[in-house]
Design a protein around this nucleic acid. Structure first.
Lengths: 146, 146
DNA sequence: GATAAAGTTTACGTAAACGTAAAGTATTTT
DNA sequence: AAAATACTTTACGTTTACGTAAACTTTATC
């Protein structure tokens, strides 16, 4: 039960901060299926959800083709065909493995960023110490040049 | 202290399952810096580590340009310039935020895959039930046609 | 009724990340 | 020495995911 039932292309584009060009491209690639009033596209809340999924997929490094494959598989499971259901389960398992790999990668990266950050802070602390010593030297003997 | 000190292009390519073309491309883009013996590339273990980081970056959805930026920034921090150090810390903070977003995305995706999988299994269970009923009907009255 | 605003199609252009082929060099093996 | 193997450079081709411009229609506004 979404707030609204239909959306114009620019409404969607604005909401998700993409260009209308991108939205049309996603339709072209078979990821969105707006109806038409005349020649104008009318997007349903299902399309809106899918757009959200497309963009999240992109952030996770999924290609449009991969996302489309998931969409299509999911649609076909609704037909209740056993073979399709099994195929969907298999695909889901694969995606899960992929996400596991990504989680490992991220955890590794975070650890390395921790040590990198620590070294930066150490180096900065060193610089600060030197600065303080210089300042100290100046305030203790400010008359020397005179 | 890695096992070996230097690597040929095909050794690296084989180890990380990429083409030599890719490795050369990464050098071309300034991500790797092999030395030369004649005109042949000789990769150090530092290059090897970087190749590993490049590939992990790709799995996390990083572009080569992004990865290169991190490499370059890190190299410059070693010069101990304060401005560079602060810039590095800032960049690290941004990357962290990016990874947080990805973790959220992955968690969301996993939840949705859970419910998708559950629905598939339900649908399959339904199919199995129907099958069993058909089988039952046949075994109980196998003589009917006679 | 003119004009602006939002929509459309068509089509060429572009950046990223390689693939692929051609043609040559250097070394090693038979 | 001939052939196979591994490396090189040069350069054009390809896919993905759009950007950008041109030319046109429909709807809303002054």
């Amino acid at each position: 039960m979404d707030i609204k039932k239909t959306y114009s292309i620019s409404e969607l584009a604005k909401e998700f901060d993409v260009t209308t060009r991108s939205v049309r491209f996603y339709e072209d690639q078979g990821l969105l299926h707006p109806t038409r009033r005349g020649q104008t596209r009318i997007f349903s809340s299902k399309d809106r959800v899918r757009l959200k999924l497309i963009l999240r997929g992109k952030r996770m490094g999924f290609s449009l083709a991969e996302t489309k494959e998931l969409f299509d598989l999911w649609d076909e499971t609704l037909s209740g065909n056993e073979k399709q259901l099994l195929l969907m389960l298999d695909t889901l398992a694969n995606k899960r493995a992929q996400l596991e790999q990504q989680k490992n990668d991220i955890a590794q990266a975070e650890m390395e960023m921790d040590t990198a950050e620590a070294r930066c802070r150490e180096a900065l602390a060193e610089l600060q110490k030197k600065k303080r010593q210089q300042t100290k030297a100046k305030t203790e003997e400010p008359v020397e040049q005179k």
